[in-house]
C-alpha cells in the first residue's frame, strides 16, 4: 500500500510510522516522503496513493504549503482516497474554515504510533 507523506521533518515522526508499518502491516506500507510540494511533479499523481499525510508547514523552499496543496486538490478536483493533516497547530480546523477549505481529519504532532494506527487501520 502506497502512503504519501508531505513532511519536511519526517525524522520526528519516522519511528511512529515505522512501528505501525512493522506492527500492523508486516512492512507492507510503502512510504514516499516529500519535503516540498514540487517534489511531486504532477500533483494529480496524489490519486495514485492509498493514503496521504500532509504537513501544513513544509520546507521553506516548497512552492506550496499544506494549505496550498489542499487548495490545489479542491480547485483541480484531484481525486484522493484518504488524507490526514499532520500539524502541531491545535487551531487548524478554524484555519481551514477561514480559508474556505473542506474539513479534513487532523493528526496532532507529536505523533504517537497508536493515533497514527487509528488513521491507517482502515487500510489493514
Amino acid at each position: 500500500m502506497k502512503i504519501l507523506i508531505f513532511e519536511n521533518e519526517f525524522f520526528k515522526v519516522e519511528n511512529a510510522f515505522n512501528y505501525v508499518n512493522e506492527r500492523y502491516f508486516n512492512g507492507n506500507l510503502e512510504f514516499t516522503i516529500l519535503p516540498k510540494s514540487q517534489d511531486l511533479v504532477n500533483l494529480s499523481d496524489m490519486s495514485k496513493y492509498d493514503y496521504i499525510f500532509l504537513d501544513i508547514s513544509l520546507a521553506k523552499k516548497s512552492d506550496l504549503d499544506g494549505f496550498g496543496i489542499l487548495k490545489k486538490i479542491e480547485e483541480e478536483n484531484i481525486s484522493i482516497k484518504k488524507l490526514t493533516i499532520l500539524t502541531g497547530n491545535g487551531d487548524i480546523k478554524n484555519k481551514l474554515r477561514e480559508l474556505g477549505l473542506k474539513d479534513y481529519p487532523v493528526l496532532l504532532k507529536p505523533v504517537v504510533f497508536s493515533q497514527l494506527y487509528d488513521n491507517l487501520k482502515s487500510l489493514s
Binding site: 519511528n15 511512529a16 502541531g88 507529536p110 505523533v111 504517537v112 504510533f113
Partner: peptide
C-alpha cells in the same frame, strides 16, 4: 514537541 518521543 520534545515530550512526543516519550509518550510514543
Amino acid at each position: 514537541n520534545k515530550l512526543g518521543p516519550l509518550s510514543n
